[in-house]
Simulated assay, not measured.
Amino acid sequence: MANIVFNIALGRLAYYTSLPATNDALIMVPIETSGIVADSVMRDYDDLATLLAGASNEQTTMGRKTLASVTSAVDDTNDRWNMDAADVTWTAASGNAISAVVICYDPDTTGGTDADLVPLTKHDVTMTPDGSDFTLTISDFARASSAA
């Protein structure tokens, strides 16, 4: 489950995760332990380029992953919207330690830059790559509900 929802994504999370555009996707970006900013700072970034221009660093050796089997659906029984995806595996993970992953909405996978990627959620993940495969289990990466 997400540790934070970025301010830019509040109220839009269900829409973005429904993948409404022709060439859109959700992209998972690993963030290095070194330099990672506090949640109170991170949540204010409005695009991935700005996030990475700050103190936080992308762990580029492991690389970004496009989420597969994304589901986004209403759950009337529990009065919420559930967002899920298939687990993500990095084969022979190497490079610097990570402390988080950020899931971003990419409105057009055929072009664009990090300035086009909207950060949706940040998840605390502690991992030091050692050459082994690393699988990140995703179970409802976010839920949205009213506070009624």
Rank of each mutant, 00 (worst) to 15 (best):
N57C: 05
G112S: 01
R12N: 15
P30S: 03
A49L: 13
L13V: 10
A142H: 03
T60G: 04
N7W: 04
L48M: 12
A85S: 08
N23L: 06
N3S: 07
D79C: 11
L26A: 03
L120V: 11
M83Q: 06
I4V: 04
T61C: 04
T91I: 14
T109S: 12
Y45F: 15
S34I: 12
V88Q: 00
T110L: 13
V125A: 08
M127F: 15
Y16M: 05
S132W: 09
A21G: 01
T77P: 05
A93P: 01
F141P: 08
N7T: 15
I31D: 01
I138H: 08
D108G: 04
G63A: 12
A14W: 06
D140N: 15
A73L: 00
D24T: 06
V29D: 06
V70M: 10
T137H: 07
N96H: 06
M42I: 09
D133L: 02
T22W: 11
I8W: 08
S146C: 14
D24G: 04
G54T: 07
A144G: 14
D124K: 15
I4Q: 01
T113W: 01
T50K: 15
A144C: 13
L10Q: 15
Y15M: 12
G35E: 01
D44F: 12
D87K: 00
T61A: 11
T61W: 03
A85W: 09
L136I: 10
P119M: 03
T22S: 13
D76V: 10
S99P: 14
S40G: 06
S72L: 07
M83S: 06
A49P: 06
M42D: 11
H123M: 08
S40C: 03
D46L: 11
D24A: 07
D87V: 00
G111S: 13
D108K: 04
V29Q: 06
T66V: 13
T137P: 05
